[in-house]
Design a protein around this nucleic acid. Structure first.
Lengths: 254, 254
DNA sequence: CAGTGGTCTAGACCACATG
DNA sequence: ATGTGGTCTAGACCACTGG
């Protein structure tokens, strides 16, 4: 039997571990850590003891320990930063996104804090992909907007939007007030618009995406792409984004 | 520089590998294998040399090699079976599923072979989950249908359906002809029905699901759940299913 | 600078599937 | 009985981060 204590809001936590013979050791370590995360003994944001100390305490090799840690990272419970440490990733609970409504409305709005951070906003020529999605001639100007949505302190959605620049001459100023695309739309007389198409794929986080989403690289993620048009059938918004696989459920109803 | 040959339809394939210093060795092995899969030098269904031989040929440790193999399994390119070997998983290409249409119609129908295998079909009491989804009283009977959809020889969708038994007294015989739920519906006068809701979540394959989908356990997958009602608003079909993360794109348009 | 996680080595034993 | 992938050990060096 091995034993380790780590600090928590509720005081020192006993990490007791006695390997059984009916399952892989790393699996038992995984179960143990997952239980501590689920119960809050390892609270969101907490840093784990270093791998060397942890492995030593558990009387296993680093390699064995790392198998457990790796799966917990894949599942979005932990996130590792080289040279820094391993941290409990918030939130373990998932939330729901409904298609066709605004992000902030589509959350199961049960006491979750939602924050929007604008990463970049610029006008530039459309990429071929953007031009095709928005039915623009190549070389036409678009407004490119990149944002991160943060729920309960954790980034859960990074996206890149493109709008035909000609449709929104005053986009920047209208958007700036509340970081609201909706307000920018309304400032240009676009009140009703509808979802033309939403696509969902799976993928794995690139290095950049991993940093933005506070994930370990190569963690599985959702990739979404959606297209909005105004009431006249003009395509006005093209959005691509990614989400941690384990913290969101998409709902489509009609 | 290390060198290995393995058989392929086009004859022996040179596996040449000279590690660079600008990236992790396992990453280079990953890139190498992935390229061979993409080009068809490692064709679908092919078995890789054993890990011992492969590691020896590449002049790396099994552990290093396994890092590359593990990621390729996560991404659905390879599948490993204990005691048997590691195989190239078909298809590397993904296909598209549209919401609200029949599976077979919703494929990008470009020469893909589609097969349906019925795993089980029975009448039993509804589970609490099924009862809630179908708005049945607890204990009412449902028809439970489990199937696997196989595209181009690879299982890509396993699902479990439930129908209110009282709505479809002759389900089994009507279904049996072509393994078609649609035909069973039509035999009971249900011609028009509509999608009430579709939910998409992420998850990781259980041991059973991994076998059914020809994946390595703990590979990331999609989990879907959808609910259909007839034109009178009666809920007639509740489907839960899972798909390999890397071989499907969901499209929702309206 | 010290500590972190990322990578890699060179072994070993095991459960499992197949012939 | 053989070969497979799954697990585990006991080390080592590295790049990176932060104080």
């Amino acid at each position: 039997m091995s034993r380790l204590q780590y600090p928590s809001p509720a005081g020192l936590v006993d990490f007791q571990f006695k390997p059984r013979h009916d399952a892989a050791i790393w699996r038992q370590i995984y179960d143990h850590l997952l239980a501590d995360i689920a119960t809050g003994r390892l609270p969101p944001g907490a840093q784990l003891p270093g791998e060397n100390l942890l492995a030593q305490s558990l009387k296993v090799t680093r390699g064995t320990l790392r198998q457990a840690l790796h799966l917990l990272q894949q599942e979005g419970h932990l996130t590792a930063r080289k040279g820094v440490g391993i941290f409990v990733r918030n939130p373990p609970a998932s939330f729901t996104v409904r298609d066709g409504s605004r992000f902030i409305d589509s959350l199961d709005a049960s006491g979750k804090t939602v924050e929007t951070r604008t990463a970049s906003l610029e006008r530039r020529n459309a990429t071929p992909e953007e031009a095709e999605a928005l039915c623009l001639e190549v070389g036409r100007e678009v407004i490119a907007l990149a944002r991160v949505r943060i729920v309960d302190g954790q980034p859960v959605y990074v996206n890149a939007k493109a709008f035909p620049a000609s449709c929104f001459p005053r986009f920047e100023s209208a958007y700036a007030a509340n970081q609201s695309v909706n307000e920018a739309f309304e400032a240009h007389g676009v009140r009703l618009y509808k979802r033309l198409e939403t696509r969902i794929r799976g993928g794995f986080a690139s290095a950049d995406e991993a940093v933005a989403l506070n994930l370990t690289p190569a963690t599985p993620i959702f990739r979404t792409a959606s297209l909005n048009e105004d009431r006249n059938g003009n395509r006005i918004e093209w959005t691509r984004g990614c989400w941690p696989l384990t913290c969101v459920e998409f709902v489509f109803d009609r």
